[in-house]
Write a protein that binds this DNA or RNA. Sequence first.
DNA 1: GCCGTTTTCGGCCCGACTGTTTTCAGTCG
Length: 573
Amino acid sequence: MQNGEIAGLFLELADLLEIQGSNPFRIRAYRNAARTIENETESFELIVKNSPEELQSFSGIGKDLAEKIVHVVETGSFSQLEELRNEIPVGVVQMLRLPGIGPKKVGAMYRELALTTIDELKAAAEQGQISELKGFAKKTEESILKGIEHLAEMGNRALLAEAKAQVDFIIEDLSQLDSVQKISVAGSCRRRKETVGDLDLLISSDNSEEAMETLKEHPLVSEVLQQGKTKQRVRLNTGLEMDLRVVPENSYGAAMQYFTGSKEHNIVMRKKAQERGWKLNEYGLFEGEKQIAGDSEEEIYTQLGLEWIPPELREDRGEFEASEKGTLPKLIELKDICADLHMHTTASDGTASIKEMAEAAKKLGWKYISITDHSKRVTMANGLDEKRLRKHWENIRKVQEEIKGIDILCGIECDILEDGTMDLSEEVLLEADWVVAVLHYGLKQPKEKINQRLLNAIRCPAVTAIGHLTGRLVNRRKGADMDMDDIFKAASDYGVMMEINAHPKRLDLNDLHARKARDMGIPIVINTDAHSTKGFDVMQYGIFQARRAGLEKKDVANTRTLKQFRKMLRTSR
DNA sequence: GCCGTTTTCGGCCCGACTGTTTTCAGTCG
């Protein structure tokens, strides 16, 4: 059982308890524990099996929760959850997803009207039954109906790349206003999380009305959902929602800190303020009535005895300890990258030639690239067999003679077949400069089988890296099930690199896995998997993911010169 | 339900906006 699944059960319990009206602090305790479990790279299943006494050493896990975790790992559930599941139907929990509807209202509708599904809720609202309940009225009823309609359309969080493109466009337009002094995105988009639930836009201005009126009329905005003096909430055409907050200039840093989050990071920040007898909110750090910091984020962190923490690390996953000790990483930046080692050409399913790709990469300032077209198993993509591959490499060498200032490696993206063998012979693979081994098919095989396939690939002396390890697609497909400890241990032993695939839909390794791989001494490569010259643009998202993992320039192999890079390749090369 | 360099009991982050209310509860971030 994966950590995420264990955490999911506790989150479910928290929702159920909330609808029931339980003690809010108890509910929070379950959510905190779920977060601890989800953010931990060590497998809780293994901890339960090997050293269950360690469970209570994790923050937020005490005697009771430790027992429940053991029970979950052994039986897949626990009695308290089962009892509540019997008591409250799943449809009732789903009602929590409606905007403006929380546990109290859901609880009331369930108890008073016995509504158990979204469909029943919709019917009741249409018949006007909701507005007759105490504490409800026409507006709430309408907002429920609107919410149900919207739920059907949207549902998922947006990809970072999509969300960021929209907010960047809006920022460009709003920053033209004379009344807007400072403007920035905040929230999970600024933290570069792989998905974004909604956008947060922050402005310092002495004329909030002008900004709000302009945003209201912006071509990307479809509807104003809320509007007050300092806060406006709008829905964009894409369905994504956005909060605009307007603060005075001397509160801008505090507001940036506050609205960038994460929630968990901010709870620690406010506790630190409290410990010193101060108060921290979006307007500043206060000693009594007196603002002692607020202009800039740096001041606030400094006052609390901390080094400024980059937004990507603000998840309460160890950044405070590092900040206090002065050991925060100097995070990798886009400009550190000088190569891309995973891309396609017209030889398989790319749209540009070898030469076009090389020239485009050179324009970006990159010093070397590896052309890695598909192997023959990927018939849909016109994958290469041994003969075509050798011919392709000949063509690469010809292009290399024509183009100076960038080195082109002869590579291949080779499938790891369902039976665990490589799609191309070891003989031909050993002729390559660079071999990215990947899973494309059979992602649903059982964990043991997937593990075996990856271990075989890592042991194959020709393989230099594993690409998009799990095969997950953000928001769309769960990756293959595997034992990360085994895989990383083997990769570390055999000197095989791990890729962060920078495509916004992949971002695989994810942040936690990338951090773990680095901690186990595995060199990381960040690659675009470009299928066209435009495809190089996604490198930034790979960098974001690497930054969230806490990676520095030295942790990433394609920040090195080609000579240094070659020295990092496994000894069998 | 968890946690403790004032505590093993009594706390547990903070504020804006909305809707349903006549001073505030619920929801959200």
